[in-house]
Amino acid sequence: MGQVHIDEVSLAFETRRAGRVVALEQLSLAVPEKQFAVIVGPSGCGKSSLLDLVAGLKETTAGQCRVDGKVVTSPGADRGMVFQSYSLFPWLTVRKNVEFGLSLNKVPPKERSERADHYIGSVGLLGFENAYPSQLSGGMKQRVAIARALANDPEVLLMDEPFGALDSQTRSLMQELLLGIWEKEQKTVLFVTHDIDEALFLGDVVYVMSARPGRIIDTIDVGLERPRHYDIITTPQFIEFKRRIMSSLHAEVEKAMNLN
């Protein structure tokens, strides 16, 4: 469960200033179940839009997304999402935030609180169950958002630059935490970032996206051994991958900047 297929997907929209903008052009990729797939690309390349399409939050202009063979037509609980902006409900405590999806789907209170406890524990926030989001740091908020997505038991976890707003120390810790959870949960993850180190550290596969209109210009089978520790970023293989991504992205960023 949790296979994602993106079949020749295009996305275009009208803007008042620039007319018709093609964000994605005939983009295809396939993510097998339980894979950690990362999409890395310059800002504005449409990588976040791609996640929105898989989530069903946007409609494709052409092509389709499928999850376990089923064509995506609307958002659903089988595709959980974590946003860069945390997007916690400020009026709910940590526990109620984590239980939100379960309460929507009428899961009985006992099971709800057991699942919430489990995931609050696995993101290391025991003791903060009754805190409100405004009392938490950015890293803690994002841990709540991850727990909330996982408590809902989705087939696929979509992550849109989830650590982009965090400082670099917190970010490394969060990456390790995420890998630890993923290795236990074995969910399909589609993760979007512009941070090359993050992409290589986390991913089984890294897709490199071009500047707009976004296409996949390189695919890297990372294949670094798991469980991973942060010191792999200094290994020759990691550095070689990084060099390869940087050189393809460099040209794309230049292209993107000239376009503006």
């Binding site: 989530a55 959980g80 946003f83 999806g101």
Partner: peptide, 21 residues
Amino acid sequence: HDDLYNVSYTLGASRWQVVTR
């Protein structure tokens, strides 16, 4: 914020639930 609506949809909220919750 749009993200609050979006995250609710991805947690399985119906349109009515998005309004009330």
